[in-house]
């Protein structure tokens, strides 16, 4: 009996401590802002997004409002602020903007690190390790390491020069065309 009381007491204390810690943590973070670096947005809009919309953004995968990495696009989920249908008009600017936010905001600190080291740690990102199936991915392995698709994604994270951007454009275009 005393053991049970002690267990309940310990559990209650744990709840109190957790609650207090959580409350204090939230209070101090309410106004916190942190500026983190994302990869090139323009390159994402023109090269990366068109590919991942096709490969990852179908309605049965990431083109779903219930998916952690939500992607909008012409052939997938359409933006709630607009009245377009799946399979209708081309992907819109606001959809590309939100796709960029989804990808860069998935692991913002890690993404900033990967940008800072010119993509050297890109393979640590969920954005890369999931489609490679290096980390469990419900959709399985969807890109091969070193393929056009893989170099489209990793290249974008580490792209710095116009030459890098041209390479990313070419890889993404080839990867998207392979899905035609």
């Amino acid at each position: 009996m005393s053991g049970k009381v002690a267990f309940v007491g310990a559990a209650f204390a744990l709840v109190l401590v957790t609650g207090a810690g959580g409350g204090a943590g939230c209070q101090s973070d309410l106004d916190a802002r942190q500026t983190l670096t994302c990869p090139d947005e323009k390159l994402f809009r023109t090269a990366v997004s068109p590919f991942i919309e096709k490969r990852c953004g179908t309605l049965d995968c990431h083109g779903s409002a219930t998916q952690p990495l939500r992607l909008y696009g012409e052939l997938g989920l359409r933006h709630p602020a607009e009245a377009n249908v799946s399979g209708g008009v081309e992907t819109t600017s606001i959809e590309r903007q939100d796709n960029f936010a989804s990808v860069c905001g998935l692991e913002p600190e890690k993404m900033a690190d990967a940008v800072g080291n010119l993509g050297a740690s890109a393979d640590q990102l969920l954005f890369i390790s999931k489609p490679r199936d290096a980390m469990h991915h419900k959709g399985g392995k969807v890109i091969e390491e070193g393929s056009d698709a893989d170099r489209c994604l990793t290249g974008w994270v580490g792209a710095l020069t116009p030459e890098d951007a041209a390479e990313v454009n070419a890889r993404c275009k080839a990867a998207a065309e392979a899905l035609e």
Partner: peptide, 8 residues
């Protein structure tokens, strides 16, 4: 039936 989350 086409919509934001359906191709109809």
């Amino acid at each position: 039936g086409a919509g934001r989350s359906s191709a109809g």
